[in-house]
Design a protein around this nucleic acid. Structure first.
Lengths: 338, 338
DNA sequence: ATGAAAGCGCTAACAG
DNA sequence: CTGTTAGCGCTTTCAT
């Protein structure tokens, strides 16, 4: 049987409140009884029931995180960042994988709300803005990362400037002399996908480069999408000389198509993307990429929630815009011989 | 304010038990009042408080998962497998990252127990067997994956035969004609690390190949370890012709060292490992590897827990041994020209 | 078919 | 310094 407060109280012939006091170190308790209680707790292997505590406290001391894809190392790092802050504040983390599915996402949001999470970090895949506005009224802080909700309402946000980052990444290609640029981006109801495309467009305009609508590919943020779109392009006579992908998986798929066709990177086609975090160190070609500070994004998101928990009446919304890094690698540089 | 049962009861001038009944669809309720209640619930945006429910139910309907490294795609897949089963059974998943740290692991186990999880899936990094035996008495099912606890007690386990897999992987190298074999494995208090080494040894013995103790490297399951150990070996005059690593990260580090030294794979040194799941499709050389059915491991682990929840008095322990696949790739095959 | 009331395990007033 | 008691929001007997 599981031992609980009343068991150790009974054993010691004292009241459960005294026991509770020493466990929570709140209020004074006679040194001797305190020691005795501590000893008994250990002996009996007492573990406080967090559910009961949560009910009383009206908070589960838990952060919820919803990401589209656990397998993407960008999100894995974000989660680690959230977890670090959660740990420091004695909270735990419920991780949910929406699998790029809006319905699943909504389901998980509800679930987390019902679980009385302290706050919620979410990389939405384009969820209904009205729902978010409704949830907002629940008072549970939502911190958006990566993708922002498509609404004018104020929310807490930790992100990068995706338009600028897209611009910079395209700029890099332009500086390498490319004029036939193609882009593969994600679902346009996801702000990252839309904004990176926007930055790309702007850069081309600013540099007087033709935007070829046929070379604007829109897919899912998955390898298959990148592969399929690229293959379509490869069937045509005229080929782009550079590919810009809005995330890493899209590019991996595209590169696979390119290589299968017998073309080389970057000689025939240069390739760049967002968040090519190479956990193996062996991805070839090494990818030129905009790298978001994923761990920090997660950590800051967690901190915002902790701050709001401590200061409930703090009704200010934070919009944190972090600086990503452009890492230039062989996938976009004509090799200058060894 | 958050709306709760009593609010909608008050509004309708009925008792909360009736409302509860329609929500849980338990017991009969007049069709009209039921419809009215349903309507009001929607209007007021009622969300049941899962914490209160959990307290009453004495279970949080949640599975806990503890893995050593969220960034390793093997574990990411395991988690997805658990999550799938959890979803199907209307449970959620709390993911914890022990970061290969025994203390953190113990902390998380405690936390999850306190949270009244329905069960716990754990890839231990060598936690104290006595603790596990103690926890077992709590009645909450622990399902071990990947690493097994170092104890004779019965536990639920979903794994592969690591000795055999290690044997097979080594065998492959032997069949390629290698006689100077080196192994890089993980902490020996982790069963996977120890058993894979065992299989390796056995294979060499069976094939009359010298086991060179100097080429048995023991590190952490991280890239740096693989890199450092390999670099030590590379300093010496005599080099192995093949490297066997007990996990992917170890091998990635080793390969990096090999390549930096200007040697090639597999011509100078062949390289194989466990669980080289290439999410990018661009890792070069492509790694010969034993691949565990990660998703299935997670799913089965989840199912065991669900089964035990439904049938509390089921005191049988399941030991599921799955079949891994040996994927042969360029990292271990002398190319026969194109 | 519905309501009253007990209780899940704990915390925190309040009283002594 | 310690005990009594009232909830936290919900489910579930037990009456009616």
């Amino acid at each position: 049987m599981v031992v609980q407060l009343k068991d150790i109280a009974k054993r010691l012939n004292i009241s459960i409140s005294t026991v509770s006091r020493v466990i929570n170190d709140t209020g004074r308790v006679n040194k001797d009884t305190r020691d005795l209680i501590l000893k008994t707790i250990k002996e009996m292997g007492y573990q406080p029931n967090e559910v009961a505590r949560s009910l009383k406290r009206k908070s589960a001391n838990t952060l919820g995180v919803i990401v589209p894809d656990l397998s993407n190392s960008f999100y894995a790092s974000v989660i680690k960042g959230v977890e670090k802050v959660a740990r420091e504040n004695e909270h735990s983390v419920i991780v949910c994988n929406s699998d790029e599915d809006i319905l699943k996402e909504e389901e998980y949001v509800q679930l987390l709300l019902q679980k009385q999470v302290t706050g919620l970090v979410i990389a939405t895949v384009g969820g209904n803005p009205e729902l978010f506005e409704q949830y907002k009224r629940s008072g549970i802080p939502f911190v958006f990362i990566d993708n922002l909700p498509n609404t004018q309402e104020n929310f807490d946000v930790v992100t990068i400037d995706n338009v600028k980052a897209g611009y910079d990444l395209a700029k890099h290609l332009v500086e390498q002399g490319h004029e036939k640029l193609a882009i593969i981006t994600g679902p346009q109801n996801q702000s990252t996908a839309a904004e990176r495309l926007l930055g790309f467009r702007k850069c081309l305009e600013d540099n007087g480069i033709d935007i070829r609508e046929k070379w604007i590919g829109v897919g899912e943020f998955r390898r298959e999408s990148g592969y399929d779109i690229m293959n379509e392009w490869l069937k045509q006579e005229e080929l782009p000389t550079a590919i810009f992908a809005a995330n890493d998986f899209l590019l991996y798929g595209a590169i696979r198509a390119i290589l299968e066709k017998g073309l080389s990177i970057p000689q025939d086609i240069a390739a760049v993307c967002f968040d090519a975090n190479d956990e193996t160190g062996l991805v070839r070609p090494q990818i030129t990429s905009i790298i978001q500070p994923a761990h920090m994004i997660g950590a800051i998101a967690g901190e915002i929630i902790m701050r709001k928990e401590k200061n409930k009446n703090l009704k200010v919304f934070e919009k944190v815009v972090l600086e990503p890094k452009l890492i230039i690698n062989e996938s976009s540089q004509i090799q200058t011989g060894r």
